[in-house]
Each structure stands twice: as structure tokens, then as C-alpha cells.
């Protein structure tokens, strides 16, 4: 059972792990929003955001290899959607490379989406890998995210391990019976698997609901202690947010 695949490393000890989830959420979301709204063609702001991400990542003691493999998840989308842009873009100056020409504007588009996607993804990884799921959801609740979402997501988190495990078992059973789907008309086998996965998950949901209501579940997950924002949390939140904003504002003034 891959028990910790969602928030693995969320329980390490580091200055970043110790921060309040709300401080981390606001600071890292601030970097993402500043980064995404920075006009294309700018250079300095991205250096500021990248530096912030590197400093936080370094302080968080997350294994470098883990960070790198997680960040590379966005590459397929960049490759499929944006890689051909420099070759297809029309207008503006072009660089002639013999067989084909590369548009300058197209290269800027490619650089722009790649750097923004990588920095934003790193921020989200830093948030979710340094905060246990339940703490993050509780932090969201304190920031007025509707309780419906945090409770449904918490249930999802609790049961996703079981259901993914169940799906893995089905996959193993299927493969041991020599299923080799190659063409789209073999897809109906997956349909049967998903159908029994659904039936089993619904029956589990019914049992879980009955067991929980027998134990007095009222739609909230009570906590033993309420986290408090400390001076260090405020400092981190303000420092990172202001640094990101100043990176963003450099573009406005020049």
C-alpha cells in the first residue's frame, strides 16, 4: 500500500514545516499570482520569484530529487502545447535556422509559459509537501473556504488510499489474466473495472456513513488544538508577499 503518496514529507521537521498553514498558503499563493500576472518578456521579476522559491525549498529540507521529479510533471503539457509555438508564430522578427525559421515573439511565449508554469508548480509543491493534509484543510477553513469543500476533500483524502489500492488490486488481477489492451474497443474491460470500483466505493460510503452517524458525526472534524499565528508566521507571510510584490512592481516602474 502506497500509504503516503499525497503528502509524503509533510511531517519532516524544518522551519518551513513549522509555519502556520495560513501563512504558507498566503505567501506561496502571492508568489504564484505575482508570477502569473507578470507581463511576458520581463526578466528580473522571474529571478526574484525563482530566488524566493529556492530559498524556501532549501529551508524546507525536502529532498532535491523529490522536488525535481514533482516539478517535471508539467513538462508534457508544455511540450504538447507550447513547444511548437516558436515555429508557428506569425509576424515579428524571425531567426533563420536554414530549414525552418524561429519567431522571436514565439520564443518569448515559450519562455513565458515555461518559466511561469515551473515557478507556480514549485510553489504548490512547497505548500502541499510541507503541510499535512488535515492541517492545510483546517487552515483553509479558517480562511473562510466553504466547509463543504474542506470536509469532502478530507473524506476524499481518507479514502483515496483504500480505493486506489482497490484499483491497483483489480489492475493486478486483470494483468495476471493476460489483458493486453491495445485498441480502443478493448476499453470496455476498463469500464467493467470502473463499474465494480464504483459499486464497491458506494457500498463502502454507506457503511462509513452509518458507522460515523452511530458515533455522532455532525459534519465537522473536531481538533484537539487550534493553531495560532505566531510572530514567525506573520514575518514569513509578510516578507515573502512583499518580496514577490516588489518583484512584480519592478516591471511597472521600468
Amino acid at each position: 500500500m502506497k500509504h503516503d503518496f499525497i503528502d509524503r514529507y509533510a511531517r519532516l521537521e524544518s522551519p518551513v514545516h513549522a509555519l502556520d498553514p495560513r501563512a504558507k498558503t498566503i505567501a506561496l499563493f502571492a508568489i504564484v499570482i505575482c508570477c502569473v500576472t507578470t507581463p511576458p518578456g520581463a526578466w528580473w521579476p522571474f529571478a526574484v520569484y525563482a530566488a524566493l522559491v529556492l530559498v524556501i525549498a532549501n529551508a524546507s529540507r525536502l529532498p532535491l530529487k523529490y522536488m525535481a521529479t514533482r516539478v517535471l510533471i508539467v513538462l508534457p503539457f508544455i511540450l504538447v502545447v507550447a513547444l511548437f509555438v516558436p515555429f508557428m508564430h506569425e509576424g515579428g522578427p524571425t531567426y533563420d535556422l536554414g530549414l525552418f525559421s524561429v519567431s522571436r515573439d514565439g520564443l518569448i511565449v515559450l519562455w513565458n509559459v515555461t518559466v511561469k508554469a515551473l515557478i507556480s508548480v514549485s510553489c504548490l509543491i512547497l505548500l502541499s509537501s510541507t503541510t499535512p493534509f488535515a492541517d492545510l484543510m483546517h487552515g483553509f477553513e479558517r480562511m473562510k473556504v466553504p466547509r463543504f469543500f474542506t470536509t469532502v476533500a478530507s473524506f476524499m483524502y481518507r479514502y483515496v488510499f483504500l480505493i486506489v489500492d482497490e484499483a491497483e488490486r483489480m489492475k493486478r488481477a486483470r494483468d495476471s489474466r493476460n489483458y493486453r489492451g491495445r485498441w480502443i474497443w478493448h476499453a470496455h474491460v476498463i469500464g467493467h473495472m470502473i463499474a465494480s470500483l464504483f459499486l464497491r466505493s458506494q457500498e463502502r460510503a454507506e457503511r462509513v456513513y452509518q458507522a460515523m452517524s452511530a458515533r455522532g458525526f455532525d459534519g465537522t472534524f473536531p481538533r484537539v488544538s487550534e493553531p495560532k499565528m505566531r510572530a514567525a508566521d506573520y514575518f514569513f507571510m509578510l516578507a515573502v508577499t512583499l518580496a514577490a510584490l516588489s518583484g512584480r512592481l519592478v516591471v511597472l516602474w521600468t
Binding site: V152, F155, M156, S201, Q202, R204
Partner: peptide, 18 residues
């Protein structure tokens, strides 16, 4: 709520079956 949460987990697992 428990049912929707578990259904979300189901959708999630179903998306893993290529």
C-alpha cells in the same frame, strides 16, 4: 458529505486506470 467524499476518491482512482 461522506458519500461525496468517497465518490471523489473513486473518480480520482478511476482516472488512474488508463
Amino acid at each position: 458529505i461522506p458519500m461525496l467524499g468517497i465518490t471523489a476518491a473513486f473518480i480520482f482512482a478511476a482516472q488512474m486506470l488508463n
